[in-house]
Design a protein around this nucleic acid. Sequence first.
RNA 1: CGGGAUGUAGCGCAGUGGUAGCGCGUCUGUUUUGGGAACAGAAAGUCGUAGGUUCGAUUCCUACCAUCCCGACCA
Length: 599
Amino acid sequence: MRLSQMLLVTLREDPAEAEIPSHKLLVRAGYIRRIGSGIYAYLPLMWRVLQKVSQIVREEMDATGAQESLLPQLQPSELWQESGRWDTYTKAEGIMFSLIDRQERQLGLGPTHEEVITAIARDLIRSYRQLPLNLYQIQSKFRDEIRPRFGLMRGREFIMKDAYSFHTDEESLKKTYKDMDVAYRNILSRCGLEFRAVEADSGAIGGSGSQEFMILAEAGEDEILYTKDGKYAANVEKAVSLPADVVTSPFSSYQKLATPDTATIAKLCDTLKCSPTAVVKNVLYETIYDNGITVLVLISIRGDEDVNEVKLQNELVKLAADYDASTIIALSVPDADAQQKWSSQPLPLGYIAPDIEDSYISKKENIAPQFLRMVDKTATDLTNFVTGANESGYHLVGANWRDNFALPKLVVDVRIAQKGDRAFHDPTQTLQSARGIEAGHIFQLGTKYSQAMGATYTNEQGKNEPIWMGCYGIGVSRLAQAAVEQSYDEDGIIWPVAIAPYHAIVIIPNINDSEKVQVAEKLYQELNAVGVETLLDDRKERAGVKFKDSDLIGIPYRITVGRSLSEGKVEVVTRKTKESQDIPLEEVVSTIKNWVGNC
RNA sequence: CGGGAUGUAGCGCAGUGGUAGCGCGUCUGUUUUGGGAACAGAAAGUCGUAGGUUCGAUUCCUACCAUCCCGACCA
């Protein structure tokens, strides 16, 4: 491609709309343009990058025996009613765009394709002989994100590869899951990315095991905890660890002490000269179930620990049936305003005890009349502990479960693991922290969707069984931007060779020098002929402009047909290292071809 | 949805109760030609939208819309 003919508009200044480096650079370098919030146009250079990524994904998926197909983005609501996700996805989760056609039929724009694929499986898969099977597609997904962010990182329309596998049993599912794990590692490695596979929470998709593939980058939205021995890595949402050892409580008798101005654990421990591990703190949450019922949740947890809201949410979803609901739509720590809506009197904030009376909750419609009390495992074994006295300015010390407080029946694990905690598998290892961008996520769905939608197969005994399913996603457009986030410098993008829009660029510093133009043209032709995807900067611009643009758009190899041509050489600069060398004209093509081939 | 901010030329910004300017970019010409050239000239804006206050609003007020940032959601 000749730059003189390409739509390439680069900006000198950072666009105001962008916050993180990769977003700024993609806009500045003319790769993307925002059309609306979370909606982007992929310009010619970007589309090439996306095609490169897609092709790598395709090759690795095909290598596992998966088959490419293409499912509709426009999906009838009936399918989603069947799986039970229509209401949660259009209302509670609110992630699906929905619309009504002229026949008053309700449709959704596909945020994901479990329903469609399960309908196909139900139709087409009849016998165990057809299994296992893995179908995938690469297409745009639509999600009504509450807050689109960071360019392609969280768009409302984005490109994703999603795959769905079908099996006779769990063992077969696990095998494909493992294959996908390997394929995903290959994909990310081939894209030239630094990444980590981590244990993950499976969220709204559901199912049992799930693993995320995180591209390591400071701007990542997720925190990863891992051990240096490489044996453990998990999203902080899912991570587990050993809590710190308990320091014995200095109190031996049960009594109430005045502890003014100790609403925080730190101040309390300072005043009472005790360890936070001797404290039972009681954290209040407010959750709203999808049937509109508000439930006040009181979690008793050890003073030095914090609540992991994802784990808490999972616990609350499990309890939904107790409130005649199917899922929760909100979870928050109620602020003063929120408390006013349900409290009958001001709460002794900072001094709450595990047995705070239910009478603090006003009798109102849609508000559960009792606190949902649960205790985190870390707090169950404490003895002679310190906790609130349900009275501002006072704490109880030397307290014990059973003697002084009933231990809540719900014993849960909702503590958040933190950097520095000891690892479960090996207490000599401590958890390290890193930030990452979730580029891929693989799930073992089990029979959740097949049972809901009646997708069964006939086994060897002639009996109908639900099909076991797995699903596997990669954010193609997100991955592309994450690659930039991981690799750039003050001059611009540094693409890994495998996903760069072009491998090389031939620059003619002076377009009026016809000899150099001829040499450059010839080089350009020859490079392309041997498979080195090459740009020719034949624009009527000064050399400086061409160098700046070349660095900004991040082409891996830059060939300048300039001064050294008098010695029969051209200058070749590697974008990543900025290393420059003069290479004899006749060797350039083979040299670059080699470099590109080896990447 | 809660909290915060911003909307003025293609981009980045300044500014004013009397209807607008700067830098970059764009176009023309001359010179220049290996790290975003210099000079001369030119084009380009219903000052986010709708109301209101006012003799007069881009400026003050109100509402709405859009965009961005912090939280819950997710590839």
